[in-house]
Design a binder for these strands. Sequence first.
DNA 1: CAATAATCGCAACATTGTTGCATTTACTTG
DNA 2: CAAGTAAATGCAACAATGTTGCGATTATTG
Lengths: 140, 140
Amino acid sequence: MLNQFHHTAEDMIRHNGGRATAGRIGILAILLAEQQAITHREIEQRLPQAQQLDRVTLYRALEWLVEKNLIHKVTSDDRAWRYHANRELHSHQHAHFKCTGCAQVICLDKLPVEANWPLPAGYRFQGIELTVKGLCANCC
Amino acid sequence: MLNQFHHTAEDMIRHNGGRATAGRIGILAILLAEQQAITHREIEQRLPQAQQLDRVTLYRALEWLVEKNLIHKVTSDDRAWRYHANRELHSHQHAHFKCTGCAQVICLDKLPVEANWPLPAGYRFQGIELTVKGLCANCC
DNA sequence: CAATAATCGCAACATTGTTGCATTTACTTG
DNA sequence: CAAGTAAATGCAACAATGTTGCGATTATTG
């Protein structure tokens, strides 16, 4: 079922002038197939045995995908970044939800907070990072 | 000028049934004196030479202070937690601001977001972590 | 002042992430 | 399609943050 995402992934990568390597395609396909934002470790686990990547390569591929705006990074409180594919839904700013029970992270559709936050004088606004915490349906 | 905070710090610690050790008092005094949330490393640097603590002791003291609700932890995107003393202002939920130039973190007074966030069915809300990013007056 | 439970410090380890450099590989060009 | 080359990879080594176990020290209590 991952196969259907490989073609999309390869397209996205080529359209950004990058080399369509097995690693990048595999990673992006995994992120496209995933509903939630996942960690470096979780990506590794989902990669087929035959195609394990070096940790460094994985980090560099993710970095490149973020740079090209194909995926985005989510800051979490366990010191590990989570990654999620950018669908149209996520091209704009949005909030994330993290379950305090199972640690899963999902994207919330909208960010009902004004872009112009009241900051002290002389400060310039750039963006918002918002994480809602709670329990997901399984952990309730 | 830190001395004026030592007495306050010692009081706060004793009122919570903990031992008033030099380390805890020093750490809490530093956090009380500080306007912004600072990292483990920054706390270490502010401790007088004569009274350097082991990294582990520092972590454990901070953990205890958080547990007793005397300070709070701020998640950041550089994998390092920052700590800030709980004044009355911070007993409730509030947002943080992080400068993308100099990495300083300050607390924003209010959290103008409803406590009841629209979550998927079956999810339970617990709290919000909101970080506004931008440039501070010095970095603009 | 002695007893004791809390705290500390050291050593060792775990996890996440980064850097330098030599090797391999995907793409381009003739 | 056969190089040539820039881009991507893998390895080794390092850095930063944080944790665990355990024996030594110390603040508090009586």
